[in-house]
């Protein structure tokens, strides 16, 4: 979708522009002026042209002038920055609420009707309030086109809000360094028209049915994808953060339990434990503490489907 020119992507674009370009303009004025002055002095008062320097040890009026004027300008700059930021602190009462959950290394967005999505889908011209939840470390939700960003601090519930004003697709990044796959922790904001949004919102078919094709285990794969598991686990046998899915099910694994190495068989119990209580047993050679529990996020039926997918990998 080509963005319509002339309309700002969000309500913050104009206030950002005001603060940003005001400072840029003043700065450029000073920069060019001072640089030209400096070069002119260097040229004019070169020792070839001016053999003797005139000793001037200062000028109180000048010092006062160039203290007061920059101070006033700085206060003005502060004011523009402050007035542009002030509206960010309080969301309008009629804002729709979305809860964004960040974990290493994916975002997910939960809507009021229970729908969850990997992308942030919002209607145009309606204020959106996003509750920010981080599960493991600090992340930061950043939508460059909207000129908005807010850190997501684990243990604290915070929010950000904005008013999308232009339909289109925009990038959404994690802006606070959060470990290995930080630069891949991104998503998309889709700003839809009122009707399109309603159609999307009321379509409550489960995520799992969006699976591509009907090959065995494809539903399981869709679940893994939707929950962001593939950020750390691969299906081709390569080692990322956690063990790969390939040839996992039904095999013997060495895990560290309570500091001791124990061989275990990867069965349904094991998979369940690995998803609901990942830190009780860590596969040998992998770091501890990076995976959070998915209790209440992945249901038992979904685990069945994931296992089906794992099995399908062994047959290849």
């Amino acid at each position: 979708m080509q963005p319509t020119p002339g309309i700002d992507a969000s309500n913050y674009v104009s206030s950002f522009n005001l603060a940003f370009y005001f400072i840029v303009a003043v700065s450029l004025l000073f920069m060019i002026g001072l640089t030209v002055l400096m070069l002119y002095f260097v040229f004019k008062y070169n020792r070839k042209k001016n053999a003797r320097a005139v000793q001037i040890d200062g000028d109180l009026r000048l010092e006062i002038l160039w203290t007061v004027v920059p101070t006033l300008l700085a206060l003005l700059m502060f004011y523009f920055g402050w007035s542009g930021w002030k509206p960010m602190t309080k969301a309008p009462d009629d804002a729709m609420v979305v809860t964004s959950v960040a974990r290493m290394w994916s975002f997910s967005f939960a809507y009021e009707n229970g729908k969850t999505s990997q992308d942030l889908v919002v209607p145009v011209n309606k204020p959106v309030k996003i509750n920010l939840v981080a599960l493991d470390v600090i992340h930061s939700l950043f939508i460059p086109e909207f000129r908005i960003k807010s850190d997501m601090v684990p243990g604290r519930e915070t929010m950000m809000w904005f008013l999308p004003q232009r339909e289109g697709q925009y990038d959404l990044y994690c802006a606070e360094y959060c470990g290995l796959q930080h630069s891949y922790m991104s998503s998309t904001v889709k700003v839809l028209s009122e009707e399109d949004y309603l159609a999307w919102y009321t379509d409550t078919t489960a995520v799992t049915t969006v699976a591509e094709g009907s090959a065995p285990g494809s539903e399981g794969f869709a679940i893994l994808k939707a929950r962001g598991c593939n950020a750390c686990h691969t299906s081709d046998g390569s080692k990322l953060i956690g063990p790969s899915y390939l040839n996992l099910f039904g095999e013997q694994q060495i895990v560290i339990r309570d500091g001791k190495e124990v061989p275990v068989m990867v069965d349904e119990e094991y998979i369940k434990k690995a998803i609901y209580d990942p830190n009780s047993e860590i596969t040998k050679g992998y770091p501890k503490g990076l995976m959070q529990s998915y209790t209440g996020i992945v249901s038992e039926e979904e685990i069945e489907k994931i296992i089906e997918y794992l099995k399908s990998l062994n047959e290849q």
Binding site: Y12, S15, F16, L18, A19, F20, I23, V24, S27, F30, M31, A74, M77, F78, F80, G81, W82, S83, G84, W85, M88, S140, F142, P144, R147, I148, K149, S150, A175, E176
Partner: peptide, 17 residues
């Protein structure tokens, strides 16, 4: 001067990090 820009609240929200 670029420091002034990111000292400004509205501008820094976008430019931070």
């Amino acid at each position: 001067f670029s420091g002034l820009i990111i000292g400004s609240l509205a501008a820094d929200v976008h430019l931070h990090d």
